[in-house]
C-alpha cells in the first residue's frame, strides 16, 4: 500500500480532496447555511481532476481524451452534486446530468446502442416520473429532512476507503489482473479421406459443437463490438431465454406496481 501511495500521489490527493469536497457539500446536521457551496464544488472538482490525472497517461487521440475528461468529470461531479443537493428537484436534475455523461462514456466504450437506450429509459421515463412525484409531494419546496443527512462521516469514510482499495488493485504494479488471451478453440479436424469403422457395440455419439462458450457473442469483422448486429446476435442467440425471462420480469413488475400503488377509492395523494 505504501508503494502504491508513493507511485500515485495524484490519485491519493484526488481521493482526499474529493472526499473533503463531498463532506463540505453534504447537508449538515445544522442548517449548513454558513458553508458556501462554491468552495465545496471547487474542492471536489479539483479532487476529481487530480484523481483522473493519477490514472496514468493514455495513448488515445485528443478528441477522445477531451471527451473522456468532460464526460467523466460531468458524471462524477453530477453524482456529487446529486447526493448533496438540498432540493430534491435539483438532485433529480443532477442525476440526469450524470446519466447523460455516463451515456457519453458508453459511447466512448463503443456502445452506442446502450447509450441511446439508457438515455431513453432514464431521461425519458425514470427522471420524468420521479420529478412528477417530487413536485406532487413537495409543493412547498424543500422540506426540513432534506436539509439534514445522517451518518455522513462513517458512510464517506467507508466508501472512499473502498474506492481507494479498488484504485490500488487496478493500478498495482505489476498488475494483478491477467491479460486474457482469447484463443479460438478448435475442434480436432478429422483427417480427410480416412474412414472410421463403426463399432456396432458402441452407441453412435453425435459430433459435439466446438467448445466455445457463448460463441455468438464473440466479435468478428462482420459484427464488431458494440454494433447493433453483434449485440442482436448475442441477445437473441446466446441469451434468448434470458430475454424471454426479462420480458416476464417486466410483466410481473408492472402487475406488482399496479397492485401496490394506491387505489383511487383509497383517496388521492
Amino acid at each position: 500500500m505504501n508503494s502504491w501511495m508513493q507511485q500515485h500521489p495524484a490519485t491519493v490527493l484526488g481521493l482526499v480532496l474529493w472526499a473533503i469536497g463531498l463532506l463540505w457539500l453534504m447537508p449538515g446536521r445544522k442548517s449548513g447555511a454558513s458553508r458556501t457551496p462554491r468552495t465545496g464544488v471547487l474542492i471536489a472538482v479539483a479532487g476529481l481532476l487530480s484523481f483522473f490525472a493519477g490514472c496514468g497517461k493514455s495513448n488515445s487521440d485528443l478528441a477522445s481524451e477531451v471527451m473522456f475528461w468532460v464526460f467523466a468529470t460531468g458524471a462524477l461531479g453530477g453524482g456529487v452534486l446529486m447526493i448533496s443537493s438540498r432540493n430534491p428537484v435539483y438532485g433529480a436534475l443532477w442525476f440526469a446530468i450524470a446519466t447523460l455523461c455516463t451515456c457519453g462514456l458508453f459511447m466512448l466504450q463503443s456502445a452506442p446502442f446502450l447509450a441511446a437506450a439508457t438515455i431513453i429509459v432514464y431521461a425519458g421515463a425514470v427522471i420524468v416520473t420521479f420529478l412528477f412525484v417530487i413536485m406532487l409531494a413537495q409543493q412547498s419546496g424543500a422540506a426540513g429532512y432534506d436539509q439534514r443527512s445522517q451518518q455522513v462521516w462513517p458512510a464517506s469514510l467507508g466508501a472512499f476507503v473502498f474506492l481507494g482499495s479498488m484504485a490500488m488493485v487496478l493500478q498495482s504494479d505489476p498488475p494483478r489482473y491477467e491479460r486474457v488471451e482469447i484463443v479460438a478453440a478448435e475442434t480436432p479436424a478429422e483427417q480427410p479421406g480416412t474412414m472410421v469403422a463403426l463399432d456396432p457395440t458402441k452407441p453412435v455419439i453425435a459430433p459435439q459443437p466446438p467448445a466455445i462458450p457463448n460463441f455468438l457473442s464473440r466479435a468478428d469483422s462482420k459484427a464488431p463490438v458494440g454494433s447493433m448486429k453483434g449485440l442482436g446476435r448475442s441477445l437473441f442467440g446466446d441469451y434468448l431465454f434470458a430475454v424471454e425471462l426479462a420480458g416476464t420480469l417486466l410483466l410481473v413488475a408492472s402487475i406488482g406496481a399496479i397492485a401496490i400503488a394506491p387505489r383511487r377509492e383509497e383517496g388521492a395523494l
Binding site: 483522473f52 490514472c55 458524471a75 453524482g79 446529486m82 447526493i83 455516463t102 466508501a159 472512499f160 487496478l170
Partner: peptide, 17 residues
C-alpha cells in the same frame, strides 16, 4: 483502468447517497 475507476466512483457516490 480509468473508465473502471470512474465506474467505481459512480458506485461509491450512489452508496454514500
Amino acid at each position: 483502468i480509468r473508465i473502471l475507476l470512474v465506474a467505481a466512483g459512480l458506485f461509491v457516490l450512489g452508496a454514500i447517497g
